[in-house]
């Protein structure tokens, strides 16, 4: 997977002197819908942070059930951010709510990324079908990365998908 997204992620530009992105500069909302059931994330979380991250919401899916996942990222600040990378993925995790983000080297069901500039009030949207064939717990996470002087910073929204 890394090979196809490498050019996108390579454009993160960690060392470029661009505006600093803070967690509340971007609204990131992730929604999942399956049948009549629907859930969306509650907040954008900053990482790293000294605060304990809030518990993630979880959404139950049946094996091979088709869900529609959508997210948007909106620049709610008055600053233009350049070369913002929005990365998102669905990856199997050991247990719901686990703090560590699994490595994206295996058990990745879906991964995507885009990079562009965001003027104030500009947004990007993504919507896709998701079908997971194996039971387990999966992390669905959308993160804005790489646009500030502190490498490793990101703002993200996430939820757990519990596949029965």
């Amino acid at each position: 997977m890394t090979n196809v997204l490498a050019p996108v992620l390579a454009s993160i530009g960690w060392l470029l002197p661009v505006a600093a992105l803070a967690a509340d500069d971007f609204e990131i909302v992730v929604k999942v819908k399956a049948g009549e059931r629907e859930l969306q994330t509650a907040q954008v979380v900053q990482s790293p942070s000294k605060r304990e991250p809030p518990a993630r919401r979880s959404f139950a899916l049946k094996r091979d059930e088709t869900a529609q996942v959508s997210w948007h990222a909106l620049n709610t600040s008055k600053t233009k951010f350049t070369d913002v990378v929005l990365r998102f993925f669905v990856v199997q995790e050991a247990k719901p709510g686990q703090r560590e983000v699994p490595k994206l080297t295996k058990d990745v069901v879906y991964e995507g990324a885009l990079t562009t500039d965001f003027k104030p009030k500009e947004r990007a949207d993504w919507k896709f079908d998701l079908k997971i064939p194996s039971p387990g717990s999966y992390l669905l996470r959308v993160e804005a990365v790489g646009t500030q002087q502190s490498p490793g910073y990101e703002g993200y929204a996430a939820m757990d998908l519990i596949v029965e």
Binding site: M1, V4, L5, P7, V8, S11, V108, V109, Y110, E111, G112, A113, L114, T115, T116, D117, E122, A124, D125, W126, K127, F128, D129, K131, P133
Partner: peptide, 25 residues
């Protein structure tokens, strides 16, 4: 007859990129 689908909507500047990896059958 759609097996899987998805789309992004965004403003694209020169050299903007979009990519994805989708597992399906």
């Amino acid at each position: 007859n759609v097996v899987t689908q998805g789309h992004a909507v965004m403003n694209m500047k020169p050299k903007s990129s979009v990519g994805a990896m989708v597992r399906f059958r």
